Amino acid sequence: MIRVLLADDEALVRAGVRAILDTDPGIEVVAEAGDGHEAVALARAHRPDVVLLDIRMPRQDGLAAARELRRTLPGVAVVVLTTFDEDEYVAAALDDGADGFLLKASDPRELLIGVRAVAEGGAYLSPRIARRVVADLRGGRAGRRARERVAALTPRERDVLALVGEGRSNQEVARRLNLAEGTVKAHVSAILNTLDVANRVQAAILAHEAGLTG
């Protein structure tokens, strides 16, 4: 069972998101919060697998909550779920260590796919956001810098990174490369350390920049 904490300052939005999540028997909403401060406190109390955060909330916004969750509860996956798709919000969320970025206007199935992806150790960006991020990253000198950083990885680590770039979970990577899941976890940890990135989303972006993904 995937345990989810939902944080949004609008009760009607929380009800709608919860209704979507409740359609999946493998997902359980364990708590709801109306602001970032409450979300962090409830996450500490309930230890969910995934926290869904709106960006604009009173007292503490979703980006500040994401930073605090990443620092104090690193094992919890954080997904930003918002109306706003401006580049500055996407960049800030990824810099703050979010494992996913979803738009409220997306197909409801994307919400379920995204929650499952991050709960299984993967990363997920709304396709609309992913297309724009990849297009931006492929412009300019980002690709060359990424290739230089990726060159420090072993061949097997580059194979793993390529699949992480596709949003694959550890289980999927293990199956594709015929490795034990524990071995994949060790490779992912080494990749994050070598590339000096906070999480799988940032590693996935580097994989795209370096041209490791199709």
Rank of each mutant, 00 (worst) to 15 (best):
I2Y: 01
E10W: 12
A19T: 07
I20T: 10
P25T: 09
G26W: 03
A31M: 07
E32Y: 04
A39R: 05
V40R: 01
V40W: 05
A41T: 10
L42S: 01
A45C: 05
D49T: 08
D49L: 10
V50R: 09
V51M: 08
L52N: 00
L53Y: 01
M57P: 07
P58H: 11
R67S: 13
L69Y: 05
R70I: 09
R71C: 08
V76S: 02
V78T: 10
T82R: 06
F84M: 12
E86R: 07
V90K: 01
G97T: 02
G97L: 02
A98Y: 07
D99V: 03
A105F: 11
D107Q: 14
L112D: 06
V115R: 03
V118N: 01
A119S: 11
Y124S: 09
P127S: 03
R128M: 14
D136G: 13
L137W: 13
G139R: 13
R144K: 15
E148I: 15
R149Y: 02
P155Q: 10
D159V: 00
G165E: 03
E166H: 07
R168P: 01
S169G: 04
N170E: 00
E172I: 01
T183E: 13
H187G: 05
T194P: 06
T194H: 05
D196L: 01
N199G: 15
Q202G: 03
A203H: 06
I205R: 09
L206H: 01
G211T: 09
L212A: 03
T213F: 04
